[in-house]
Design a protein around this nucleic acid. Structure first.
Length: 491
RNA sequence: CGGGGUGUAGCGCAGUCCGGUUAGCGCACCUGGUUUGGGACCAGGGGGUCGGGGGUUCGAAUCCCUCCACCCCGACCA
């Protein structure tokens, strides 16, 4: 078979780039740092969106839409928030172009300078809290639980398709609550939803935990995260949920009247996942042959490739294909019959492997005679000839089996690449030689965390929720520690 | 934003050092035919602002200046 992807062993980064392009997921655009998401890639994102959207609505959230532009003055209201985002904001300063007097195209009209510059949202807390101020008067107006699907812009130095682009698509939830407890509960609910989505739909095992103060969202009191481990041993932060306390309420003066007639600031959360999930999905399961998609998110779940010599033969095969695909479609399975005659079967096999289609059926004259079909599964590349009779049930179960199997593979990989270390030397050695998640004791100070980051480029991914209490000493300073935290090099 | 690399047909590349017919090759594409159980073959055909702009020269893909984009490695970040 022709080699179309750089093997992972040769260059993991190059393999990833090749895969995104060759599987037709996305490509670089004419605009620096911004990508074009192609139809096949966007179809996966749309599936993710529709599942998440339902999960949000099932937990009492509603969708809305807020502007792309944020007045500069809004931005400066929450000190930590500005500091966190200031360095990567795109700013609109003018509202008009004019023909260049020298005839060489158009130039910005200097007369058309905005009185107040507009920031292109890197996130929407400020515009949303400025709006919520007008929506909230009493406890009866609470809670407000809103989500928006949007694009945001963060002017990144170095970009990579899906993993980090200057513009990306995401959803951002913004909620307002009466009490601290309720806001904290919301923060937890949402990180649980993300974890659930990652594991059940993406087949991606994740670790839930809290970020250290240093790694927290700008303006949050607490950031919860789901962290996934990629095949190269690096961690990928895949979703975050923030407890914002009363910081934004105070910054935007959002008060409500309690049922005792007193005034208080409302409590806030925000949470989001982005097209970065696409990167996670790609890197989690794929191999040197191409993409491996979890059946639940695959735009095409079953592809059927006919093998024939003459048009007459194709016609006979097509009739059988119709009998096979009708019951599959009735079960809600996405089936594609590729009867294009300008590509040979072998070409198609390779192509659909590259695109990660979970199940491939091949039907030729031999099968017509025997009443069989060849079934190939993408995750293991195994092929099996089965009877057409009852093949719909077989395939339905196979899809479930593939979903389970790739999840299991990912979780086994993570287990093999999660290690406890007790000394800083051991930590550095494991990090350099094996990577993965490292469980180690840390004294809880920002100083130590930064020293480790500077020495090794590893960061604390999270303080896991399900970590066991264990007395120990910080691997760097020897100070006491009550539990281990998770370190890794990260994307 | 620093260091390194690349930019020539849709894709992958040769040609650039050392300037000189009409810029070439493979894949893809179009037409015809033979093929079809793991990326088919033959014949014919179309497709190029040589990344953009400026300069040197009788003459520039090739030399000089400048800008842009992408990739890799750093710093920054989801």
């Amino acid at each position: 078979m022709a080699k179309v992807l750089t093997p992972r062993s040769e260059s993991y980064a190059q393999w990833y780039n090749d895969l995104v392009l060759k599987a037709d997921l996305a490509e670089n655009s004419a605009v620096r740092g911004c990508m074009v998401i192609k139809p096949y890639g966007f179809a996966i994102w749309e599936k993710m969106q529709s599942v998440l959207d339902k999960m949000f609505k099932d937990t009492g959230h509603q969708n809305a839409y807020f502007p792309l532009f944020i007045p500069k003055s809004f931005f400066s209201k929450e000190a930590d928030h500005v500091e966190g985002f200031a360095k990567e904001c795109a700013v609109v300063t003018h509202y008009r172009l004019k023909n260049n007097p020298d005839g060489s195209g158009v130039v910005v009209d200097p007369e058309a300078q905005l009185e107040e510059e507009l920031i292109i949202r890197p996130t929407s807390e400020t515009i949303i809290w400025n709006t919520y101020k007008n929506w909230i008067q009493s406890y009866r107006d609470l809670p407000i639980k809103i989500n928006q699907w949007a694009n945001v812009v963060r002017w990144e130095m170095r970009t990579r398709l899906f993993l980090r682009t200057a513009e990306f698509l995401w959803q951002e939830g913004h909620t307002a609550h009466e009490t601290k407890a309720e806001a904290l509960e919301e923060t937890e609910t949402m990180i649980n939803i993300y974890a659930d989505f990652a594991e059940k739909w993406m087949a991606l095992p994740v670790i839930q935990g809290a970020k250290t103060a240093n790694e927290r969202f700008a303006g949050a009191l607490e950031t919860y995260t789901i962290e996934a481990l990629m095949q190269d041993g690096k961690a990928l932060q895949s979703g975050t949920s923030h407890f914002l306390g009363q910081n934004f309420a105070k910054a935007f003066d959002v008060k409500y009247t309690t049922n005792e007639g007193k005034e208080d600031f409302v409590w806030a959360t925000s949470w989001g996942v982005s097209t970065r999930l696409m990167g996670a999905l790609i890197m989690a399961h794929s191999d040197d042959h191409g993409l491996v998609l979890p059946p639940k998110l695959a735009p095409i779940q079953v592809v059927i490739v006919p093998i024939y010599k003459k048009a007459e033969e194709l016609a006979r095969i097509s009739q059988v294909v119709e009998k096979i695909s009708a019951p599959l479609k009735a079960k809600g399975i996405e089936v594609k019959f590729d009867d294009k005659d300008n590509k040979k079967p072998g070409w198609k096999f390779a192509e659909y492997e590259l695109k990660g289609v979970p199940v491939r059926l091949a039907i030729g004259p031999r099968d017509l005679e025997n009443g069989t079909v060849e079934v190939a599964r993408r995750d293991t590349l195994e092929k099996k000839v089965v009877a057409i009779e009852g093949v719909d049930v077989y395939i339905e179960e196979l899809l479930e089996d593939i979903q389970t199997n790739i999840y299991k593979k990912a979780i086994d990989f993570r287990a093999e690449n999660t290690r406890k270390v007790n000394s800083y030397d051991e930590f550095k050695k494991v990090l350099d030689e094996q990577g993965g998640f490292i469980l180690a004791h840390w004294d809880g100070t920002e100083e130590t965390e930064l020293k480790i980051k500077e020495d090794t480029k590893a960061t604390i991914r999270c303080i896991p929720f399900d970590g066991e209490d264990e007395e120990g000493v910080c691997m760097v300073t020897g100070k006491p520690s009550k539990r281990r935290v998770i370190f890794a090099r990260a994307y």
